[in-house]
């Protein structure tokens, strides 16, 4: 019926113990090209652990994570060579941190922050790198006149935009985001959500977004995983999970949201 492209990322039975304490247990899911998957749950539910496990930042205790590489097809990200994995992480993948200080180089200009990934894959033409940085500042709706300013002079929302531009400049196919709007004012958050949604749609990006904010999850993600105590208790279409939650915990989560 539908033309089936293979999933971009498959997590199977991903389990992570920290010194015997479970971070996440037996988590399995797939992410298809162009799909945005949200992971929700309260603090300590294991959602960030899952995000780190599937983005090659934290090797799971057991289980596998497979990524459909551009040239060699599906590959276990923890079994490929380290150079291949690191290359993947800085070209085909993006990672947007909650705190932009973790995702940006605070000591160099906005332009250099965006250009870094290009230089890391061999760009050696200053003019072209600068042009790309300029284009991306524009795409994330930042003032291109501030290209040579340090990130430290930007507001939190602008730093977050810069972090997004820095990740997207190498045209990744999947972006991992950890509470991307977590530190922002509500008004700034709305604009950033709109930007993210537009970019994801226009670029056909796949994304995995960890958030504790159900409103963010509703607006950005196609599908949702609800996590509790390290386990996925419910998954499905975002509006299905939020409007017709089945699991007692999902129901509690949804009913706990305060609607203004």
């Amino acid at each position: 019926m539908m033309q089936e492209a293979p999933p971009l990322l498959s997590a199977r039975g991903v389990t992570k113990f920290y010194e015997g304490i479970p971070g996440c247990r037996d988590v399995s899911f797939e992410v298809w090209p162009g799909e945005v998957l949200g992971i929700v749950g309260e603090s300590g539910s294991g959602k960030t652990t899952v995000l780190n496990c599937i983005s090659a930042r934290l090797e799971p205790t057991s289980g596998t994570v497979e990524y459909a590489t551009r040239h060699d097809g599906p590959a276990d990200i923890y079994r490929m060579s380290e150079p291949a994995r690191r290359l993947l992480m800085r070209t085909d993948w993006g990672f947007v941190h909650q705190n932009p200080r973790e995702g940006l180089r605070m000591g160099v200009s906005a332009g250099a922050n965006i250009g870094e990934r290009l230089m890391a894959v061999g760009a050696r033409h200053y003019g072209n790198i600068r042009q790309a940085a300029n284009d991306w500042l524009d795409k994330v709706e930042m003032d291109t006149g501030r290209m040579d300013d340090l990130p430290i002079t930007f507001s939190g929302g602008m730093q977050q935009r810069l972090q997004i531009a820095r990740n997207l400049v190498t045209a990744p196919r999947i972006v991992f985001m950890d509470e991307p709007t977590g530190n922002l004012d509500v008004s700034v958050q709305a604009r950033l959500l709109d930007l993210l949604r537009g970019l994801v749609t226009d670029l056909g990006l796949a994304a995995v977004i960890v958030t504790h904010d159900l409103a963010v999850a509703r607006l950005l993600s196609h599908r949702l995983l609800v996590m509790r105590r390290g386990k996925v208790v419910e998954s499905g279409l975002t509006d299905q999970v939020l409007d017709d939650p089945q699991h007692p915990y999902s129901q509690l989560l949804v009913s706990s949201v305060i609607h203004p």
Binding site: R86, V108, S109, A112, G115, A120, A123, Y126
Partner: peptide
């Protein structure tokens, strides 16, 4: 992985 070294030269030119 030496690409980042160019970041410094980029900053100089900028």
């Amino acid at each position: 992985e030496y690409g980042v070294m160019h970041v410094r030269l980029y900053e100089d030119i900028a």
